[in-house]
Design a protein around this nucleic acid. Structure first.
Lengths: 348, 348
DNA sequence: TTGAAAGCGCTAACAG
DNA sequence: CTGTTAGCGCTTTCAA
C-alpha cells in the first residue's frame, strides 16, 4: 500500500503531511512557519507538534521559487587567509545570521575586476537577495549588471553600479592617526610602505598618510609599495632600511610591517631606537612579535555589522534611499615599535 | 507590446521565453543549459543566442525544487580569522568550485558540539548536498541526524554519524617531524605547548609529539596547554620560560609559538641559543618574525582538495564505499628559531 | 482566523 | 534528436 513518490526512496515530509496530521490546511502550516499573524495559538501548537513528530523541515528551494526571495546574501571575497578579508568574512556571516540571512561565498584569486564580475555572476546564478563585495581592486572598474543591492566594503559604492551601498572602513582616518602618532613623537616626517595601489583601501590609507603630513607641513617622501605580504614588506623594506633619513615608517598592514622590521634589523637598524614602525590591522600576533608592534586596529566587526544593516535595509526597502554610513572609531594601539627619533633620544 | 508578468515589475525571462524566441520546446532549452547530449549543434547555438539576447539566467530555486539537488556544499567553520580554519575555508571553496559546487558558510562561535549541531541544522534547512565540518571540537560528541554526506576535516569521521568521511590532516605526522627535528639537534627532550585538548587536532599533535619522544626513549615532560592564541602562548610560556631545564619547545601552532618566544625573551632566555622553538602551520609572517620561526607547514590546500573529492564522490555515488584518504606530505621548514641545545654550542 | 486554488520555473519520465 | 506531460513543495491571491 506504500505509495512511494516516483523519486523512489526519499520520504521527506512536506507541509501537507504536517497539515494532515494537525488537521488543518496546508496554508495554515505555511502561516505557522512564516510567523504570520492570524493563527490561533492552539492551532499553532498543534502544527508545531505535528511538524516535530514528523521531523518536518521546510523546503527552501520551494519557498524561494514561490516567493522569489532566498534570504541569502552572496559574498565575494579574496581567496586568501589574510587577516583583513578573513575577519570581514566572519563579521559578515555573523551579521547576516543575526538578521536572518545565510551566506554564500565565492572567492576571487586576486580581487581583480574580471574575477569579481565572474564571482558576482555566479552568485546571481545561484540566487541571492544581496551581494557583498569585500575589499575589491577597483581599478579598471567593471560596471556589473546587477538587480540586487550590492554592498562594497572597502571601496566607494560607485564601483558596482546602481543599488550599491558602501560601508566606510575609513582607512584614511586610521592612517592619519597612525601618521600623526609618529609625528607627535617628534619625527620630522613619516615614510609610507603602501599596499598595492590598485586597491582602493590601499589608496585610502595613502591619502590619510598624505593628509596628515600635509597638514603638519612635513616633507612628503616617496612612497614604496608592497603587496600586503610580509615577504613584500621585507623586500621593499630593504630600500627603506638603506636610507639613513628614514626614522619613521607607516606600513599599510601589519604583515608588511613585520617584514619591514626584519629588513631593518638585518640592516643593523634598531626598532624603535633608530626607526619607528606603525602597522595597520592589529593582527593577533602583533602584540607578541619583537618589538611589540604599534598599530591601528581595524573595526572589522563594526564595519561588517553596519554594512550589513545597510544592505539588508536596501534589500527590504527597495525604494528607500540608502542609509548613510557612520564613521567607525579610531583605535590606535601604541606598543613598542615606536619611539621618538634618534636625535631626540639623548637631549643635551 | 511589453507583456509584463503579473508580478508587476520583475521581467526576468524564463526558459519558455527563450524557447519561444529560439523556436524550440522549453525542454530543449533545459537540455542545453544542462549540457545534456542529444541536442544538435545548430539548435544549441540558436538557444544560446536567444538566451543571450534575453539575458536569460537559469532559476536555481526551480532547478533545486525539481531535481532535489542544490549543487551546494555547506561549510561549518570557526568564526575566527585564525590562519588554519581560514586557509581551509579558502581551499574548500576553491575545490568546490572546481567540481561545480558552490559553498554556503555558517560559523560557530567556538567549534563546540552544540554550536556545530546548530550550524548543521541551519545548513540542512537551507538545503545542501553535502556538509564540511572544519576543525571541530569533538569532545562531547553529538551525533547529528544528517541525510547528506559529511566531511570532517581535522577529526575522525565518527563524530558525525553515518555517511561521514574524513580527510586526514595527519597532524601527528607533522608533529612528529617537528619533535624529531629538535631531538636530532641534540636536545635531551622536547616540551610541548599544546592546543586545547578538546580539539582532536590538538590531541593529534600531542600524540605525534609523544610518539616521537617515546620512540627515542626521551623523557616525557608535562604538557602545558594554550588556546591557539599568541596571548595564551605568552601566558603559558612564562611557566616554560622559568624552567631552566627547558631547551626545546614544540608549539601546536605558530601564533602560540610567537607568544611563547616573547615570554622567553622577556625572561632573558635567548631563542634559539638557550631555547629552541618550533611552531606549526607556517603562517605568512613566520618567516619574518624575530627569530625567523622554524615550523611545519600544513598542506591546507591539499587537504581541502582531497577532502572535497571524497565528499563529492560520496554525494554522487551514494552507495559506493568512501574513498580512502591518503597521507599528506610532511613539510618541515627549518629557519632560525631552532639550534642545538646550549651545552653543545661550545664543544670543547 | 482559516482554507482553496493557482502557479513560481524548472527537471523527470516517457513518447515520438 | 526533440517534444509532452506531470509534478517538485512552497507562497500568493482571493474567498469564506
Amino acid at each position: 500500500m506504500t505509495q512511494l513518490g516516483r523519486g523512489g526512496g526519499s520520504a521527506a515530509p512536506r507541509s501537507v503531511d504536517v497539515a494532515r496530521l494537525a488537521g488543518v490546511s496546508q496554508k495554515t502550516v505555511s502561516r505557522v512557519f512564516n510567523n504570520e499573524p492570524y493563527v490561533s495559538d492552539e492551532v499553532r501548537q498543534r502544527v508545531l507538534g505535528a511538524a516535530e513528530e514528523l521531523g518536518y523541515r521546510l523546503n527552501n528551494a520551494a519557498r524561494a521559487l514561490a516567493s522569489g526571495r532566498t534570504r541569502t546574501i552572496g559574498v565575494v571575497t579574496l581567496g586568501t587567509a589574510l587577516y583583513g578579508p578573513a575577519s570581514l568574512l566572519v563579521g559578515i556571516e555573523r551579521a547576516a545570521r543575526d538578521t536572518g540571512y545565510t551566506v554564500r561565498v565565492v572567492n576571487t584569486a586576486d580581487g581583480a575586476p574580471a574575477g569579481i564580475a565572474g564571482a558576482v555572476e555566479s552568485l546571481l546564478d545561484q540566487g541571492v537577495d544581496g551581494i557583498v563585495i569585500s575589499e575589491p581592486i577597483d581599478q579598471g572598474e567593471v560596471t556589473l549588471r546587477v538587480d540586487v543591492p550590492v554592498l562594497v566594503l572597502g571601496a566607494p559604492a560607485d564601483i558596482a553600479g546602481p543599488r550599491a551601498v558602501a560601508a566606510g572602513v575609513r582607512s584614511d582616518l586610521l592612517a592619519r592617526a597612525a601618521t600623526e602618532h609618529l609625528l607627535d613623537l617628534g619625527h620630522a616626517t613619516v615614510h609610507h610602505l603602501a599596499g598595492p595601489q590598485r586597491w582602493y583601501s590601499a589608496r585610502d590609507r595613502l591619502e590619510g598618510w598624505r593628509a596628515a603630513l600635509t597638514d603638519r607641513g612635513a616633507y612628503l617622501p616617496a612612497v614604496v609599495e608592497g603587496d600586503w605580504s610580509a615577504a613584500s614588506g621585507y623586500e621593499v623594506g630593504r630600500e627603506l632600511a638603506a636610507d639613513q633619513d628614514v626614522t619613521a615608517v607607516f606600513a599599510a598592514n601589519d604583515d608588511m610591517a613585520i617584514g619591514l622590521i626584519r629588513a631593518l634589523l638585518e640592516a643593523g637598524r634598531r626598532v624603535p631606537e633608530d626607526v619607528s614602525v606603525v602597522g595597520f590591522d592589529d593582527i593577533p600576533v602583533a602584540a607578541y612579535v619583537t618589538p611589540r608592534l604599534t598599530t591601528v586596529r581595524q573595526p572589522f566587526d563594526a564595519v561588517a555589522k553596519q554594512g550589513l544593516e545597510l544592505l539588508v535595509h536596501a534589500i527590504e526597502n527597495p525604494d528607500a534611499d540608502p542609509l548613510p554610513a557612520g564613521d567607525p572609531p579610531v583605535d590606535l594601539v601604541v606598543r613598542a615599535s615606536t619611539a621618538p627619533p634618534p636625535s631626540r633620544t639623548t637631549p643635551e
